[in-house]
Computed example of a mutant assay.
Amino acid sequence: MNTLKQFNQFTASLPQSDNMPALFMGHGSPMNGIELNEFSTSWANVAKSIPVPKSILVVSAHWFTRGTKITAMDFPPTIHDFGGFPQALFDVQYPAPGNSGLAHETAQLIKSAHVELNHDWGLDHGAWTVIRHMYPQADIPVLQLSIDYTKGAAYHYDLAKEIATLRKEGVLILGSGNMVHNLRMLSWEMINGGGYDWAMEASEKFKTAILNKDHQKLINYEKMGAEVNLAVPTPEHYLPLMYILGLQNDTEAVNLFNDKAVGGSLTMTSVVVG
Rank of each mutant, 00 (worst) to 15 (best):
E35D: 15
E116G: 02
K48T: 08
N99K: 00
F90E: 14
F64M: 12
A61P: 12
Q137A: 07
N99S: 13
N45A: 10
P53E: 07
P53T: 04
A72I: 06
F85G: 11
L89R: 05
G83L: 03
N45I: 00
A127H: 02
L117T: 11
E105K: 14
P95T: 09
G152L: 06
E105L: 12
A153F: 08
V59T: 08
A72P: 08
H125N: 11
R66F: 12
S112T: 15
R66T: 13
N45G: 01
H104P: 00
Y94C: 10
D124Q: 14
V130L: 11
S49Q: 02
T71I: 09
I56H: 01
Q93Y: 00
G33D: 08
I110A: 10
I147V: 15
S60Y: 05
D91E: 03
A61F: 09
G98H: 05
W128H: 05
H104R: 14
P97K: 01
K69V: 02
F82I: 09
Y135D: 01
A107I: 01
V130S: 06
P76L: 09
P86C: 10
I79V: 13
I140L: 00
W43G: 02
V142R: 02
T106Y: 04
T150M: 12
V58S: 06
F39T: 06
Y149A: 07
